[in-house]
């Protein structure tokens, strides 16, 4: 591996996805650029419908993009003509939001995890019995990684709690020996006490296996705990991105600011009046010109409705797309 691709595991340029609906085209992801370095955790945050799940589906190849490139370890992914190739998303694995629905209830844990083995993973063993033994040993190895073990092998999903199921889903993803793990709200369906366990597991996996991760979430608390960098999306657009602390401590885009303000703090007495945004209509606005956030922004000017603000990168890779950013004193 050369130094260049050590730095960037995933490189996405101008990625777009347009869904054709009865009301006309709807842009779910609009020309998004992102880079993930080796061993780095990028959090993608935003409200429901901002395109974060679509982005994850594009990265894993569950949906085809309508423009832009995804390069992963110097290889362009999902090129025309390789739709059915077994290797199309090699090295990328995904963990879904709800472990209750992402694991087949009729399969035992050993089969759930072993199903994810790559072709050739058991090639070291010859003969049926040897292969079976190796398969079992390898599943135990992956279960150990997520803090589970042999006693769980022959059980069915209904015998586990939500947190344990999510661990099994992680083991299943790790069994693909990924370099990049996509996590689509992995703790949203879990209790707070269990959420903390999963977040700790994520941190541990990150250091032990130096995995790169895309962590999709709308919980800024978890994000600040696990992520190295944050990308904030709004209606399919990247509105701000940068190192976690820079974005959370010094947000420049008004949407990021609003997201941070909306997080309830567990410290009592910090009841603040929220500078609330105007609610979004149920009809998702399909903004064709101007800033996508102009309709809800507290400091919209005429210019915002006419032209889309460019994405400006400031110091330390902290960038935003806004003409009139939040100044440091405000944040």
């Amino acid at each position: 591996m050369t130094a260049a691709n050590m730095l960037n595991t995933l490189k996405v340029r101008g990625l777009s996805k347009i869904y054709q609906t009865r009301k006309g085209p709807f842009t779910a992801v609009n020309a998004v650029d992102l880079d993930i370095a080796h061993g780095e955790v990028l959090a993608v945050v935003g409200e429901s419908g901002c395109g974060k799940s679509t982005l994850s589906r594009l990265l894993i190849g569950l949906d085809r993009s309508d423009g832009g490139d995804i390069s992963f370890q110097d290889r362009k992914l999902y090129q025309p003509g390789e739709e059915n190739s077994a290797h199309r998303n090699e090295g990328i694995a995904i963990v879904f939001q709800d472990p209750y629905s992402s694991l087949n209830p009729k399969m035992k844990v050993i089969d759930l995890v072993a199903e994810a083995f790559r072709y050739g993973a058991l090639a070291a063993a010859s003969g049926f019995r040897e292969r079976k033994k190796l398969r079992r040993a390898k599943v135990i190895e992956y279960l150990n990684l997520v803090g589970m073990g042999e006693p769980h092998l022959d059980r069915f999903p209904h015998e586990f709690s939500g947190g344990q199921l999510q661990r099994i889903a992680f083991a299943r993803a790790l069994a693909q020996e990924p370099k990049l793990l996509i996590l689509d709200e992995p703790t949203a369906a879990l209790d707070v006490s269990v959420q903390a366990q999963i977040l700790m597991l994520l941190k541990e996996l990150k250091t032990r296996l130096s995995l790169s991760m895309v962590f999709i979430s709308h919980d800024l608390g978890s994000v600040s705990f696990v992520a190295d960098r944050i990308m904030v999306m709004y209606l399919g657009n990247r509105v701000e991105s940068g190192p976690t602390r820079a974005v959370l401590d010094n947000p420049r885009h008004h949407y990021t600011r609003a997201l941070i303000d909306a997080v309830p703090s567990i410290t009592p007495g910090k009841r603040r009046e929220l500078a609330l945004l105007m609610s979004r209509d149920s009809d998702r606005p399909n903004v064709t010109h101007g800033c996508p956030f102009a309709g809800r922004c507290p400091s919209t000017a005429d210019r915002c409705r006419k032209e889309a603000p460019p994405y400006i990168e400031e110091e330390a890779n902290h960038g935003y797309a806004c003409f009139y950013p939040v100044s440091e004193s405000q944040s």
């Binding site: 006490s193 903390a196 977040l199 700790m200 608390g221 600040s224 959370l248 941070i260």
Partner: peptide, 23 residues
Amino acid sequence: RKLMATVPDIRGGATVLEYISGQ
């Protein structure tokens, strides 16, 4: 106490989250 310690704070700073083991 434990329940409060499991909540990650947006202001960061924590490198370890406590969690309640068992069920």
